[in-house]
Simulated assay, not measured.
Amino acid sequence: MKAVILCDGDIPQKRIIEREISGSDLFIAADGGAYHAQKLGLQPDVIIGDLDSYKVTGTETAEVIHDKDQETNDFEKALAHALNRSATEAVVFGATGKRLDHTLKNLSVLLQFDASFNSILLMDDYAVMKMIHSPFKESFEPGTILSLFPLSGKVEGITTKGLKYPLKNEDLENGVRDGSSNESIEKTVEIEFKKGDLLLLINH
């Protein structure tokens, strides 16, 4: 089961969001994301959050869930609801952009829920972001800009194939060395690593 979640950050063009909604089973607007949906003429199934941004009018056709918990943000609430509705995949828009602290928090939420879903994709105008697990293998058009980011601080023993700047049993660590702006040079990219939480950014 696939859920689409619309948060209150920067969102891509309507056609991209509509494409994902058309193949989904559940469309969730996370608090202020409901205003994005309204502006785009999209109808969510659920609006959820602490509702500090979205003001309920009483005319909503969507189910409105007011979750006052201040220990979780709206993205967490939306993912937890999707999980409770038996979603195994999630495509998320608006989780990045605007306030940097919100973006960083949402990347932390991505890591928190990664093990609970088969796939969580964060999409914006610049990239598709996802956690990857070793061994990883996927096809890309040669010339695709790929960035590897050690989300929890350090990823150890990384070996890659099909990238312009290969890694051979090497580490990436925040504040020491990162793997931004690499490039696929073959149709198939393979990545293995021994330990850590690795975020892949597939740049448009």
Rank of each mutant, 00 (worst) to 15 (best):
G175R: 09
P135Y: 01
L104W: 13
S152F: 06
S116A: 13
Q13K: 15
P166D: 10
P150D: 01
F75D: 02
Q43F: 11
I158R: 00
K164P: 06
H36C: 12
R19Q: 12
E63Y: 01
S184N: 09
Q38V: 10
K168P: 04
H36G: 11
G58K: 10
T61M: 08
A29G: 04
V91Y: 05
H36K: 07
N169S: 13
Q13A: 15
S147A: 10
T57W: 05
R85S: 13
F193E: 09
T72E: 11
H36A: 14
Q43P: 04
M129A: 12
L51R: 07
S108M: 12
I158E: 04
E156N: 13
P142T: 04
L198V: 05
H66G: 06
F193P: 03
A80S: 14
P12K: 06
Y35G: 00
E156P: 05
G41F: 08
I17N: 03
K2E: 13
A62T: 12
T159Q: 08
A82N: 02
N73D: 14
F136I: 11
I145Q: 15
E141A: 15
E60W: 04
H133N: 11
Q70V: 09
L42H: 02
C7K: 09
R85G: 04
K77S: 02
L40A: 01
S139R: 13
F140E: 00
L26C: 10
D52E: 08
E60T: 09
A34N: 06
K39R: 14
E89S: 02
E63R: 09
M131P: 01
L83C: 06
D74G: 06
E156L: 11
D25L: 02
K154R: 15
S119Y: 09
C7V: 08
D74E: 08
L201G: 04
A62W: 14
L167S: 04
P44D: 02
N118G: 05
D67L: 09
T57D: 11
K195Y: 13
K2F: 05
T160S: 15
K55G: 11
S108P: 05
I65N: 11
L163H: 06
M1P: 14
S184T: 14
R99S: 13
L148G: 01
D31T: 05
H133M: 02
V189W: 00
N174P: 03
V92T: 00
